[in-house]
Design a protein around this nucleic acid. Structure first.
Ligand SMILES: [Mn+2]
Ligand SMILES: [Mn+2]
Ligand SMILES: [Zn+2]
Ligand SMILES: [Zn+2]
Lengths: 147, 147
DNA sequence: ACCATAATGATACCTAGTCTCGTTAATATC
DNA sequence: GATATTAACGAGACTAGGTATCATTATGGT
């Protein structure tokens, strides 16, 4: 009997679903394990190729559940492609490197406050927003001042 | 001979393309006229239905040219659908009403400054961003304090 | 008027995602 | 542990939105 290593985070994801009444099925175990092992953001298609035994509809259904539960966040790349990424906190945004594709969480940003202010000025009742920030991460900056 | 009314803005859009070396063709005239007559945002599909004589590829090609030239901006609705809208100024953002679908340009917003600050704090070289703001416009707010 | 070629539209194709529906398997109850 | 209920599954058809191909047409320069 092979002892498969269960990543704690995967169990946690599954538990989150369980608390919402969703059953703990083996496709969901496979999906949550695969996601828990991911470093950066990924597409549904990548996940699908990694889990050929799981049906396509199930992949998409699981992603939706995890996004709705807050465990995953959607990331819109500059090229328009939608990726997914583990969400370690609540609502937040990403600094996406157009060079290496890495993403950093945007921390200590009072964009919400700013949006509330300007919304009020426009007599607009703010209910949500979508923000993505593109550029180059530190590792991808040209290291010297001249080319 | 029918005298079709040419909307000045349509000519202006066509001129913009002309300055970039693109020919003034009749499909492009049809597209720019249709767009010039639009009030709010619209989808490629709506434009296509309005112009059954223009090929689908041409609709998309024209939209791309106009976005690239800065005459149109893309607007991402909360449901994920991509719309287009005349761009009266340079880079800017929209307050999108989830009730009536209207959009206001977000003015006097120093989000760029804020993003530069926080990017610098993350040692991130900012090159672009995408922001959409969702909520209710003044007309769609409940008019009284109680339900 | 003529020419080079940009632009077009019909069509096939593609990617990402949803829907349907008959089958399977997870949980609750006994 | 057996049974019943029904959530969840997967195969596959389908859809929306958009792109690639390519033979034909129309534009703008001379
Ligand atoms: Mn994140
Ligand atoms: Mn605008
Ligand atoms: Zn990078
Ligand atoms: Zn409204």
């Amino acid at each position: 009997m092979v002892r498969t290593r269960v990543i704690p985070l995967a169990e946690q994801l599954l538990d989150t679903l369980g608390e919402q009444g969703y059953r703990s099925t083996s496709p969901r175990k496979a999906v949550t394990q695969a996601i828990a092992g991911k470093q950066g953001h990924f597409t549904a298609e990548q996940l699908r190729q990694q889990l050929p035994g799981v049906g396509r509809a199930t992949i998409y259904r699981s992603l939706k559940l995890l996004v709705d539960s807050g465990a995953l966040c959607r990331v819109l790349l500059e090229d328009g492609n939608l990726h997914y990424q583990l969400s370690h906190q609540g609502h937040h945004h990403h600094l996406l490197c157009v060079e290496c594709g890495s993403s950093q969480d945007l921390l200590g940003c009072d964009i919400e406050d700013l949006l509330h202010q300007v919304s009020a000025a426009h007599r607009f009742q703010l209910s949500g927003h979508w923000l993505e920030v593109y550029g180059r991460c530190y590792d991808c900056l040209p290291k010297t001042a001249t080319g």
